[in-house]
Design a binder for these strands. Sequence first.
RNA 1: GCCCCCAUGGUGUAGUGGCCUAUCAUCCGAGCCUGUCGAGCUCGGGACACGGAUUCAAAUUCCGUUGGGGGCGCCA
Length: 449
Amino acid sequence: MAQWMTLEYGWRALTHLSEIDESKYGGTVRLGGWIEDTRNLGGIAFIQLRGRDGVLQVTALKKENEELFKSLTSLSRESVIVVEGKVQENKEAKLGFEILPSQFEVLSEAATPLPLGVADKVGADLDTRLDNRFMDLRKPEHNAIFKVRSALLEGIRGYFSKEKFIEVHTPKIVAAGAEGGSTLFPIQYFGTDAYLAQSPQLYKQMLMATGFERIYEIAPAYRAEKSDTVRHIAEFTSLDVEIAFIKSSEDVMDCIQELVRDTVAFVKENASFELGLLGIDLGTPEIPFRRITHAQCVDILKEKGEGLSPEEDLDTVGEKLIGEVMKERHGIDFYFITDFPTAIKGGTFYAMRKAEDPSLTGYFDLGYAGLELVSGGQREHRYDVLVEQMKENNLALEDFEFYLNAFRYGMPSHGGFGLGIERFIQNMLGISNIRETVLFPRDRSRLVP
RNA sequence: GCCCCCAUGGUGUAGUGGCCUAUCAUCCGAGCCUGUCGAGCUCGGGACACGGAUUCAAAUUCCGUUGGGGGCGCCA
């Protein structure tokens, strides 16, 4: 039934909705898109054509061209067409104008029924949405998350570029993990055992011995943790940063707070349409971020009736409580929890302990409204001390020869951090399940699509 | 790994032993309609996750399986 024609088009030849202004009124344009809905009133029909930047009304009149009218209105929802027509001003149309079609070409007719409605008036479970992700992402409020994500990454890169960092990529197929082996995905590598990298930790530290001085990496990290929560996925995007010649963990925290402030500001400015669509009003975080020590957290939690030993890390309830307290008492979303005890961070063999009090490390977390967004601190760059701490953890030094070598021949002081990109977006947009911030999430039970 | 909960058309749901040849909406199909924009109207279509048990009778109760959701632990 479709009307086949040959229209001139190409990735730069088509007009986009946002390019149409009053100067185009009366002229002819070609646009491509998905038929979201057809309202056929008999003699006149309104086709809602959804493109990258909005929904256009294509208005067809039966008396103008009955053949075109019939073929255009008989297309199924979500079929893809390129349409050519005249732009006509019309105050009754939502955009203030509409297109009167002169011809169109069907690029693809959609099968029916749809596995997931795009313009339907009913919701869908996340599981159904993820099973049909290509359809799900046709919804503006869902693909907006990824436009915000793109802006966030652009903001992050902009900050690091300004501060003379270089972007690097370390291997994701590795022989040993940074911390323990239980959370690694084993793979076969030309007949020997290998793993998917859970963190670029060892590599980014080795790069501190090269003279790059400031590096960052944005790359996937793989964790085989059997974590089944709304803030864990098996494959996530990690921002990893390492800086040489730092004096203490304070330098790292300075970098983080500037990064967060600038990135939030960048997103606010460059994704304002998407933020509006999602109903998000982003605040502007002020620096310096408030700092509380781990010991102070223990006291606050005691006040709140949550028992926690000074040698224990915060649990989920504790994290959330601290987030609430910081919001209530200080009206802030971002805060550093500092001075993690060696008793907690002892397993982190590369963490530097405080010279004045070895029972404490300079390690810290950045909390974001109750969620752990960043972990970081100053690393141990002194070869002998590092070896001691590895021995304490019963690590087989020969397995780490490639890493230790970088500390033998000139290694500056350094420190850094890791930030979960998805968690950043999740909290920024108030999304309840982290899976929504990933196009095709991987978790304990999902490997397809 | 542990604990709790859920599974009904393509999608989202109502239904806690017989009134269920299963509700409503959305959707799909056929038709009417020249200003719709959550279009409207008429007619039609489509489902009790799987296996077993209890019972005169099971969507409904019990057991198992599979799938899903949430919490904890751990972490980003």
